[in-house]
Design a protein around this nucleic acid. Sequence first.
DNA 1: CAGAAACTTGGACGATCGTCCCAGTCGAGA
DNA 2: TCTCGACTGGGACGATCGTCCAAGTTTCTG
Lengths: 213, 213
Amino acid sequence: MPHIPAAERREALIAAALRIVARDGVAAATTRAVVAEAGMPLASFHYVFGSHDELMTELIQHAITEEYRSIAPLLGSEVTEATIGELVYQGLVRYLDSVKADPERERGMLELTQYALRDPGTAHLARTQYERYTELVQMALEAAAGRTGWRWRVPVVEVARMVVAIADGMTVSWLVRGDDAESLALARSAARAVEAHAARVAPASEPAGEEER
Amino acid sequence: MPHIPAAERREALIAAALRIVARDGVAAATTRAVVAEAGMPLASFHYVFGSHDELMTELIQHAITEEYRSIAPLLGSEVTEATIGELVYQGLVRYLDSVKADPERERGMLELTQYALRDPGTAHLARTQYERYTELVQMALEAAAGRTGWRWRVPVVEVARMVVAIADGMTVSWLVRGDDAESLALARSAARAVEAHAARVAPASEPAGEEER
DNA sequence: CAGAAACTTGGACGATCGTCCCAGTCGAGA
DNA sequence: TCTCGACTGGGACGATCGTCCAAGTTTCTG
């Protein structure tokens, strides 16, 4: 094994740990399994990581960042001649596709989130993660409304939280049941339901028109 | 330690394991921890259980059954003078209350579900669990519609799946963020969105009236 | 080119895991 | 009352876990 700077080994070990978590679960990511996956001798582990916990903490941070980066580009769209519901549906379908493309990674993410929640030192990471997802969806919803000439009749952040909850539920549902058609129908229903919170803005003579609440 | 029939010890060990899973997570439910929690000597474990896996499998079955029983009575209602959305909101709030009453149990349930999903031998239990939840919600939705004089404009099973997904997302959201007001707002938004899939049945001159799709 | 710093590595440590043996004790039926 | 099956429980097994040490090798620095 050639000389490799500690920083590089860190990344390699984190990547290896991420693969193990996806394939075999958090419990399988032992120090020995991780170094074996990375093709390193055991002693390399404690040369670059102070402890197993240190790896897990960094693993959670890394996974969250990566997940965020993989989701963000999914939420854009250039369509302007569509209903809000159709755009939301598109977003959910694209997200579902990304889950189906690598189900093990997603299952690993769920496990890591729960693992993070157990440890007081990393619990805040999970919290921040959810906050950022909501912000992301909120921005996408605002952009979609602006582009198609709709507006939200309830605070956008609430719609965003609902969409995040639905996406979460849809993910778990697909991971558990694995039924494509079922999940697509769920996305469709959810998108239509979300649309109920929006209204066209331009035409002044729209149905009733009064605000919700 | 007095003589206790093996069947009783089984139940006591399962109950002890359930407490540990809720309090410290699935990984903490070792044979030694379980017998300590139950106040038994270590050897009692393998007198009543063939293996640790056997306990875990039975634990999953037991937890699923109990969870189902605790949710079922939440979904009833005698109200007839309300909108469908209000009834759905009530159901979600009651469910959320049950989660808040014992968050650790719920978190343990999520962990157990994922644990079950990892093992091919118990994965079907998780699948069945989701199917039964959906059936439960579907029955409640049909009952609510019949009682209030509404009807569903899309297949009820699809609405049920959406509600289950939302309840799931709401649970995770509350466990992660722990914000009561936020989760209530989420339940409210979701309930209103669900209502968009329903319509009053009696008055023939309702808004437009054409079916969805 | 010499010394310091960084990196590599086999091997071992104590702790904890699931599992099992076996000599003892108890209680119900003959 | 005796007996036999049911139950008890101390103790130990091999495996695996996280962690660490000390000696060797390579690369960088002055």
